[in-house]
Amino acid sequence: MDERECGLLFPDDRSVPDDEVLLRRIPRWHVFHDENMGRVRPSSAAFEDDGDGDPMSVYLSGIIQSEKRTPDSVLAGHADYALAGLSAGLVRELQQTVHPDARDDTAHEVVCGSKTDRTRRNFAKRSHWVIPPATLL
């Protein structure tokens, strides 16, 4: 979906501050050691829109905290996954919107915008681990 469609269908929720951390589950298939960066990080392939065409799913850390939950609640039922964090500011900088979608989880949001290769590489390199992969624990 492009910027215009996202603005219409998934408008940006400005109540989410730029320093809010958006949490994204990362399967082990998308984790590797980047020798250039000297660290294990997610592949850019981990930051695509959903396979069914829906925008990329994330969870708001602020809502999780306000509900007295911990980030690992996002991994419930998903063994062997890690949890990466992206700031809402970074997402907006890359022409994406952050839109609430609390159908299944009050903290669930979607990140809408064109996920070019460059956008996904930016997400991958500028994300951080909230819950690192099991191989790093």
Partner: peptide
């Protein structure tokens, strides 16, 4: 990777 089934990333992956 050919053994992965639908939804292998927890987000509807094919």
């Amino acid at each position: 990777i050919l053994e992965l089934r639908s939804g292998w990333n927890s987000y509807s992956a094919q």
